[in-house]
């Protein structure tokens, strides 16, 4: 869609209408006037979200060739393809705000824009594929379901599509783990090991605690975000604990205990310094992930160029054909006028 144009009217009137739209819980659409801060916050959040989907293809993608059966390969392949699709829905939403897609890719591979910290951890065994589906996609669902009502229309609509597909991601992961838990002792140990490694990083996916989340308050006021980081984290824990029990694994948190009074699970504090380290580039796989993305982008350059060249040539051919046809018509007409048989 066309990039929003800046209105000629005084900003205060436009601001009032923007505020009213939010107050009535209606959606802001691409060509509406919006405060620069709102636009910038959305571009940052949507781009970061898109980058996460694209980088998120890597940890599991590494297991496609090693998945144990054709069925598991097909499932994993479809899931990774979905992640690519989610990234594209989101880049498309970012573009309605005036962002340029090629520029966003450039910002990702030059490290100027971030992606979710979770994808900087390695996938060491096939059980990790299951645990990622269960935890990481489960956490993503907690985060994303409220975003379906986000105040910016294109973002909210992209989230609706994404949420529908995430449900498959989470269920295939849990089913994979159920299958492994019915297997050998070694397989059960693999599942427990993957749970131990992914639990805390998954809790960190919801971001820093509310007291230390600089952008949260403004995003909530703008209704880009509907719930605080800690609320969503709690929701994820409450949802996951009974699933862990049913699966027969232990979540690696000695402080995890049912709180009779509040009717939620109390849990320990994630290592926030670790989150800080991983976000600022010092996680186990940061460099490899970005490097892989850069390489894929550069390796694909000749395809992008060839397709553009092909399209240009087709266009030229079509133009030449049209011109020839017009000339032929004119010649025939002139001949007819002169009474010469064509």
């Amino acid at each position: 869609m066309p990039v929003p144009e800046s209105g000629a009217e005084p900003q205060t009137a436009a601001q009032t209408r923007f505020d009213h739209t939010l107050a009535r819980d209606q959606r802001i659409e691409p060509r509406d006037w919006m405060p620069e801060g709102y636009r910038a916050t959305l571009v940052r959040q949507i781009a970061q979200h898109a980058h996460s989907e694209i980088i998120g293809m890597q940890p599991e993608g590494e297991w496609i060739t090693r998945a144990p059966s054709l069925r598991r390969k097909a499932i994993l392949f479809a899931k990774v393809q979905d992640e690519a699709g989610h990234g594209l829905y989101l880049y498309s939403a970012a573009e309605t705000l005036g962002a340029d897609r090629a520029d966003l890719t450039e910002r990702l591979i030059s490290g100027r824009q971030k992606y979710s910290s979770i994808f900087n951890y390695p996938t060491l065994s096939y059980a990790d594929v299951g645990v990622i589906g269960w935890f990481v996609d489960g956490a993503a669902i907690c985060n994303q379901v409220p975003l379906c009502r986000s105040s910016y229309g294109p973002y909210a609509r992209a989230m609706v599509r994404i949420c529908k597909e995430e449900s498959f991601h989470q269920r295939q992961g849990y089913e994979l783990l159920l299958t492994m838990m019915r297997g050998s002792e070694k397989q059960r140990a693999q599942v427990q090991d993957a749970v131990d490694r992914w639990w805390w990083p998954s809790l960190m996916m919801f971001g820093p605690p509310d007291g230390n989340s600089p952008n949260s308050e403004r995003s909530m006021a703008w209704r880009i975000k509907r719930h605080s980081n800690d609320e969503l984290r709690q929701r994820f824990v409450d949802m996951t604990v009974p699933q862990a029990e049913r699966l027969g694994v232990t979540l690696p948190d000695p402080e995890l205990v049912w709180n009779e009074e509040r009717e939620v699970w109390d849990f320990g504090t994630p290592d926030w310094s670790e989150l800080q380290r991983v976000i600022s580039g010092d996680g186990p796989c940061n460099q490899a992930r970005v490097e892989r993305r850069r390489q894929a982008h550069e390796d694909g350059a000749w395809v992008r160029e060839a397709a553009a060249a092909h399209a240009a040539r087709q266009q030229d051919r079509q133009a030449a054909q049209d011109q020839q046809a017009a000339q032929d018509r004119q010649t025939a007409q002139t001949a007819q006028l002169k009474g010469v048989p064509a």
Binding site: M1, E95, R101, A102, E106, R304, E305, A307, A308, A309
Partner: peptide
């Protein structure tokens, strides 16, 4: 910049 940015945008 690569040719990608020259690919036009289509609505679907």
């Amino acid at each position: 910049m690569t040719a990608r940015s020259e690919w036009p945008l289509y609505e679907v």
